[in-house]
Amino acid sequence: MLSSYQAGLVADGSILLLGALSVYVILSTGQLSLGNAGFMAIGAYLSSWLTVSVGMPLTLAIVISAAVSAVFGLIIGFPALRLKGLYLAMATIGFGEIVRTFFLNFEPTGGAGGFSGMEHVPLWYILGWTVFTLGCVMVTERTRWWLEIRAVNDDELAAGLVGMNTTVTKLMAFMTGAAIAAVAGALFAHQTLYIEPASFGFERSTEFVLAMILGGSSLAAGSIVGAALLILLPELLRDFVDWRIAIFGALLVAVLLVRRQGVLDRNLFGLARLWRRVN
C-alpha cells in the first residue's frame, strides 16, 4: 500500500498530467496557451460550488464544469482565430489573470479567503479520470481527427486548401483543452479540499507548459513523463529543495537547447514500430 504521502504525490502527479495534457491538445494546433490555470480555476470553483452548495454528485459536477469550461474555451478561442503565436500567448496570459482576479472579487465563492467544504476523493477516482482522459487523447491521436490537428499546426493555408475548416479544428482544440484543465481543477479542489484564487495564477499555467515541454510536446504520452519528472525530481533532490524552481527552469532551457521535442517524441515511437515490422 502507498503511504498517504505517496498517495498525495500520485494525486498531484495525475492532476499535473491532466494540466499538461490540456496544454498539449491546444499546442498541437500550433497555439500556445499560457492561461490554462484560468480554465482550471473555473473547473475547481464550479465543481466545488456544485458539490458543496448544490449537493450534486462529484462526477456530474465534473462533467458540468468541464462543459462550462469548454464554453469559455470557445469564447477565448475566437480571438485565437485572429491572433497568432505570441499575441495569442499574451492574450491567454490576460485571460488567466482575469479569471484569477474574478474569483478574487467574487464573494459567493469566498473571494480572497478561498472556498472549502469539499469531500475528499479517493486516489482511484483521480486516477480513473486521468487514465480515462489520457486514453481518450491517445486514441484520438491515432485517428484522422488528429491528422487534421497536425495539419493546422504544420501549414494552416495548405490545410484549408485540402478542404479543412481550420477554424473549427482550432476551436475544438481550445474547447477540449479547456475541458481537460477544468477536470484537473475539479480533482485538485476535491483533493486539497481548499481552493483560493492564488492557486490558479500564472505559475500554475507555466507549470503545465513546463511538464508538457519537458515530457515531450509531440505526443500525449509525453505528459506522463513530464508530470512524473516534475513530481519525482524534487523528491530525489531533497538537498536542493530551495532551488527546485531554478532547477526546473534550467531543465526547460536545456531541453529547448538540446532536445526540443522533449524526452519522448513521436519518432521514438515510430522507431519502435519500425523495429517490430523488421522483426
Binding site: R144, E148, R150, D154, G163, M164
Partner: peptide, 29 residues
C-alpha cells in the same frame, strides 16, 4: 511545394480525404 512537414506520405493520402467523410467516419479510416 507545400506538404505537411510532420506527416508521412500515407498521412497525406488519408488527410486529404477527411473533409469529405462525416465526423465520426474520420475516427477510423
Amino acid at each position: 511545394i507545400r506538404l505537411f512537414p510532420s506527416m508521412t506520405v500515407w498521412d497525406h493520402m488519408l488527410l486529404s480525404q477527411a473533409p469529405r467523410t462525416p465526423m465520426l467516419g474520420r475516427l477510423i479510416p
